[in-house]
């Protein structure tokens, strides 16, 4: 960790921007490839994009701050319901405004759940996060006047994007909208995680006592990061609500939280690339396996998880990066 921080500080700003540009280009290349390879499956690709935002936001608190949470879907669901309720009950059907509502709701949910989750450490922290997601699920189920309960919230009909592009049956507009959103979020988050604030978060993950001794505010910093993370997850939820035009209770489920964590660890924590790679790999894998054999996909996913822990403990991206780093060091 110390090594990467040093080399990051030593390299010039230009080098960082080049690396970010490469990252953005890679996302765009994969997005274009997906568009032409699976033109009939854009709904799935949009769903992957929305989940990628959730996993990115989980990476902010888990990878950068070291907060283990199994309740992160609460922020995603808050964004989805925020955008959905704004459209269905208040007639705010402009997609950008719905997105803003989702981001706001997500950030608020992030503030609240951050304040609760950060109260404990270790296992009790994990349990608090689980309790939050279940509580949110039951509350959404009970408040069926606002959320549609277990039937889901229907009646979300977003207007044309910027007054030009209608959300078509094929989901092309939604897909492009999602990819643009993902790239924007990625660029902004890269800036945040390497800002002094992001560095402080990493410091807290490594040694909170020392940060406190140096005069840093541990709790305040983490709550702030939680709110940022909530905004990103809320954007993902809003994207899901806009693209599918329905919000179900599954967006507030424990399963989604657990899957998001699995995707993050699969890709590798503490680098935004890992979150993206993990999401794409897991969702693609789940789609292929569940289509091939709907009865055994859980077994295969389980075996995959065990294999990752045994053979690639740093995640896909982390292990690959370690291999390249070793090669780079060997070469003079």
């Amino acid at each position: 960790m110390a090594l990467t921080t040093n080399s990051g500080a030593a390299s010039l700003t230009g080098g960082r921007l080049t690396r970010d540009a490469i990252g953005v280009l890679a996302i765009l290349a994969v997005a274009v490839l997906g568009y032409f390879l699976f033109p009939n499956n854009l709904a799935l690709l949009t769903r992957i994009t929305a989940i990628a935002l959730l996993v990115l936001s989980l990476d902010l608190v888990t990878g950068y701050c070291g907060v283990a949470t199994l309740g992160h879907a609460a922020l995603f669901g808050a964004g989805a319901y925020g955008a959905g309720i704004a459209a269905a009950h208040f007639g705010i059907t402009d997609p950008i405004a719905m997105l803003a509502a989702g981001i706001l709701a997500g950030a608020l949910a992030g503030l609240v759940s951050g304040a609760v989750v950060l109260r404990a450490h270790g296992l009790p922290q994990l349990v608090l996060s689980i309790a939050i997601i279940h509580l949110a699920h039951e509350a959404a189920n009970k408040a069926s006047g606002w959320t549609g309960g277990s039937d889901g919230l229907a009646g979300i009909t977003p207007d044309a994007l910027l007054g030009h592009w209608q959300f078509d049956l094929w989901g092309r507009t939604a897909y492009v909208f999602g990819i643009v959103l993902l790239v924007l979020a990625f660029v902004i988050l890269r800036q945040i995680v390497r800002s002094p604030f992001g560095m402080l978060c990493r410091g807290i993950r490594q040694d909170p006592v020392r940060v406190r001794a140096m005069g840093g505010s541990v709790h305040g910093t983490l709550v702030k990061m939680y709110a940022i993370s909530g905004a990103v997850a809320g954007a993902g939820g809003a994207l899901n609500a806009i693209s599918t035009q329905v919000v179900g209770l599954d967006s507030l489920s424990f399963t989604l939280s657990a899957e998001a964590l699995v995707m993050l660890v699969l890709g590798g924590t503490g680098s935004l690339y890992g979150a993206l790679i993990g999401t794409a790999a897991f969702m693609w894998f789940e789609d292929v396996v569940s289509a091939a054999n709907p009865f055994h996909w859980l077994t295969i996913v389980g075996a995959l998880l065990i294999a990752v822990v045994l053979f690639a403990p740093k995640g896909l991206y982390g292990s690959l990066a370690a291999v390249f780093e070793r090669r780079g060091r060997k070469a003079p």
């Binding site: 994990l126 660890v265 924590t269 996909w297 859980l298 389980g302 075996a303």
Partner: peptide, 16 residues
């Protein structure tokens, strides 16, 4: 995190 991942994997396998 590693422990959570591994034991969730075992759980999924047993369920399947």
């Amino acid at each position: 995190l590693t422990q959570v991942l591994m034991t969730i994997g075992i759980t999924f396998c047993v369920i399947g």
